[in-house]
Simulated scan of single mutants.
Amino acid sequence: MVFLKDWEDFEMAAESMYLKNSSNCRYSMKYIHSKGQLLLKLTDNVKCIQYKTEIMPDLKKIEKFTGNLAAHMASNE
């Protein structure tokens, strides 16, 4: 498992991983209340990338990313 420090790196890696192998990708989001952290994880059974944040401005970026990922999942391509 790889933790990426930069949001842009995580976003690009996650989108490219999903586009390469969409049928095996899984995306999860977990809130850790005791630490006040949000943990994102995307895996394709071979590689796993993670991103965690404690700052509020990242939530808008995560919301936009999740919407884009859901749009990819809902499209026919």
Rank of each mutant, 00 (worst) to 15 (best):
M29Y: 13
N76Y: 05
M17G: 01
L38W: 03
H72R: 10
K60E: 14
Q37H: 10
F65I: 02
A74E: 14
V46M: 08
L42C: 05
M56Y: 15
N68V: 02
E11G: 06
T53L: 05
N24C: 09
V46D: 12
Y31D: 05
N76Q: 13
A13T: 02
S34H: 12
E8N: 09
L38Y: 03
A14C: 10
D6T: 05
T53F: 01
S16R: 02
F10R: 00
H33V: 05
E77H: 11
Y18R: 07
K5T: 10
E15H: 04
M1K: 06
G67S: 15
K60L: 13
F65S: 02
N21P: 04
K20S: 15
E54D: 14
N45I: 05
A74G: 14
K60Y: 13
H33F: 11
Q37R: 12
K30C: 13
V46L: 10
K41M: 06
E15V: 04
M73I: 07
M1V: 10
K61F: 03
I32W: 07
S34L: 13
D58M: 09
Q50F: 08
T66H: 11
I49D: 00
D6K: 06
I55Y: 14
L59D: 06
T53E: 04
S75V: 05
E63G: 14
K5E: 11
N68M: 08
A13D: 01
